[in-house]
Structures are given as structure tokens and as C-alpha cells.
């Protein structure tokens, strides 16, 4: 009986201890994200609209974003870097608009992306969202290369 209650106390005490450390570290990480690794001021209405489009269309169930999501379609966390042009910030927006219009390709044997019928405003927002995500400072600059 003695040892069981000891085991129980270790469980409750230890779990609480680790939970407190975890909450402390995530609070610090929260600050780090807001102030250091991401461009908080850069979250414009366009970026917000883009994130909403990203969620409304359930993009994450085919694509990954920063490595998380489904593994059916390419990584999009760095798509603005992969498909953009450093010297022409609007090039990626134009590329994405053309890309979204061309879907689905209906090419035989190729994975298909649906036609989402996005408005000009929505495509632009989505592009700005991807550009914003692409600027997040990740540890060791993950992903390893442009392929994502």
C-alpha cells in the first residue's frame, strides 16, 4: 500500500512539475514568435484573408506547410521563394493567380488539384500569406533546400 501511494504521488507531483515547465517554455516561445521569428507587424488584412482561404479550402489535407499536413502535394511554406522572384515581389502573386486558374490540369496519371474559383482578391491574399510564411525564421533555416 505504501509503495502504491508513493507511486501515485510521484505521478501527480512529477506531471505537474513538467506541465509547469512546459507552460513556462511555451510562454517564452510565444514571445519569441511574436517578437523575433515572425513579422508580426506584417500580418496585414491580405495575409489574414490568405490564411482564411488556406483554411476554408482545407489545403492542409493535401499539402504540407512547414512540414505539417498531408504528404500528397508539395510543401508550401517556402512556395513563394521557390516560385517567386527576389527582384520582383509581384511575380509570385501573378504566378499563383495563373496557377490557380489552370487547375485542374486533368493530365492523366498526375495528381489533381481542384478548381477553387478564387476571386482576384483571394488569390492575392493567399500569395501574401505564403510570402509572409516564407519569411518566418526557422531553426537551421528549415527546409534544407528549395524543394521544401
Amino acid at each position: 500500500m505504501q509503495t502504491k501511494s508513493a507511486a501515485r504521488n510521484i505521478f501527480y507531483g512529477g506531471s505537474l512539475f513538467f506541465l509547469i515547465i512546459f507552460f513556462g517554455l511555451t510562454a517564452q516561445s510565444h514571445n519569441f514568435i511574436v517578437n523575433k521569428s515572425t513579422d508580426s507587424a506584417g500580418i496585414t488584412d491580405k495575409v489574414r484573408l490568405g490564411k482564411k482561404v488556406w483554411e476554408d479550402k482545407a489545403c492542409v489535407n493535401c499539402h504540407t506547410i512547414m512540414g505539417e499536413g498531408a504528404y500528397f502535394a508539395p510543401e508550401l511554406g517556402n512556395v513563394a521563394i521557390r516560385r517567386g522572384d527576389k527582384d520582383d515581389p509581384k511575380a509570385f502573386n501573378e504566378f499563383l493567380a495563373e496557377w490557380m486558374k489552370a487547375m485542374p490540369t486533368k493530365a492523366e496519371g498526375r495528381r489533381q488539384m481542384p478548381q477553387f474559383n478564387l476571386s482576384d482578391e483571394e488569390v492575392d491574399g493567399l500569395a501574401e500569406f505564403f510570402k509572409w510564411v516564407g519569411k518566418i525564421k526557422t531553426t537551421d533555416n528549415w527546409p534544407p533546400n528549395e524543394a521544401g
Binding site: K4, A7, R8, I10, F11, G14, S15, F18, L19, I21, F22, L25, Q28, S29, F32, I33, S37, T38, M66, G67, E68, I136, K137, T138, T139, D140, W142, P143
Partner: peptide, 28 residues
Amino acid sequence: YVIVSLSLFSGILGTGHHYYWIGTPGYW
């Protein structure tokens, strides 16, 4: 109690393996 202690002692901070590449601090 031993098993669930081991689960939470490792698992709670083990969340850190999802905090490698998403803009969270390097200590993770």
C-alpha cells in the same frame, strides 16, 4: 502509476519535437 508517470514525464516536454522548425526557439 509507474507507466503513466513515464508517459507524462517524457511526453509533456516531448512536445518539443514538434517545435523544431516552426519558428520556435532553437532550444526546443
